[in-house]
Nucleic acid binder design. Sequence first.
DNA 1: ACCTGAACACCGTTCAAGT
DNA 2: ACCTGAACACCGTTCAAGT
Lengths: 233, 233
Amino acid sequence: MSRQTDGGRRTPLNRDRVLRTAVALADRAGIEALSMRSLAQELGVVPMALYKHVANKEQLLDGMVDVVVGEVGAPAEDADWKSAVRGRVLATRQALLRHPWAARVVESRPGPTPGTLGHLDSVIGMFLAGGLSADLTHHAMHALGGRVWGFTQELFPAPPPSADPEVQAAVLREAAARYPHVVAIATAGAAHDGGSVVGAGCDDLFEFEFALDLLLDGIERLHRRGWTSVRPG
Amino acid sequence: MSRQTDGGRRTPLNRDRVLRTAVALADRAGIEALSMRSLAQELGVVPMALYKHVANKEQLLDGMVDVVVGEVGAPAEDADWKSAVRGRVLATRQALLRHPWAARVVESRPGPTPGTLGHLDSVIGMFLAGGLSADLTHHAMHALGGRVWGFTQELFPAPPPSADPEVQAAVLREAAARYPHVVAIATAGAAHDGGSVVGAGCDDLFEFEFALDLLLDGIERLHRRGWTSVRPG
DNA sequence: ACCTGAACACCGTTCAAGT
DNA sequence: ACCTGAACACCGTTCAAGT
């Protein structure tokens, strides 16, 4: 249904249309369903036609990342550095959440794209504008790591969604014997989500902000102390 | 050369030999060179023979992860919780550094393996033994995120290794115009590595410990304050 | 200038057959 | 019980040819 039917003549391909269709296809069918061949079919075109607009699949993925990065709005101007960074990171998180495949693809890129470099630049600029030294800012960026992109790789994405409550109980009993500590904190920490104990997810935003604030507060403390890295030259 | 030549009769395959050969092949040739077919060839066997010992490639990767996790030694017993966790995390880091592909594969697994669950269990046990509440421990584990595995996904793995110093200078000049903040902290922070400014890497262990200690210190502070998560039930 | 067809060298996995 | 051969339904990418 999304196939082009403009009276036998197709609107000519261009890089932008290729990238946007790829993003839409990955959103709908999952990133594993995105191949040069499936994307070509989606565009009503033969696979080879794509290679006039993207050099190869790697460059296609780079381009898709920049489409998503482009969806992050402009940074706020007025606030202090800490809430400026905080806000920007959380805004990036929102953009990435709209495309479930995006976090994984960003991680998999072997190097920065223009879009991701621009994003890094804007976050670094906030630290520097707040008076942090280039040295502290450098390490702060490393410490934030994946969180600058608005995601954290979780220990494991989702707890197994077992339907039968009897099976759940049996699984839990066996797990408690083998991994007592895991079960202890899973049942304690997940209580707030209201669901069944074993299948309950965590409050992702809470966990994300918990770690983000732990890091930002620590960085602020170092900044106030005039911290510098003392290392052998 | 590594092909079996035991007088025409092959030593029978078993799961352990399949996994260890897969680990060795990934170490030597890279994870992208590991296919069911290349692994079979390495073992002097037809691809289908592997499927008697691992259900599919996913299970092969799970098994490889557990081989690596098995290389992490036993945890230290006596220390306080903070240095116990710190030591265990750094030991895990060492094991993962021996297998460059391992961090990426751990990240890519859709769920925990017995080995990774056991590893999580031991780290959680250290927090609980130190008197942290299950609640705080839960969030602490989330905050540590990938760091419990001994790695952090870097912003980007490696700076481009450009040979010609003239090209380097030109690249730097163009980058400085477009991404001034990135260049500012790259040149400041990388100075300690002694190499050329643009191609210098960072001190990975320093960055890793910087973030790890920021988190552990923050967690310790919350613990001393008797922190609890207050969330709507 | 832009798109196509046919082909190459790969994948993971199946099935039915061999020893 | 364990391994094999042939085949299936895929990949990304090339080359030379079409319009």
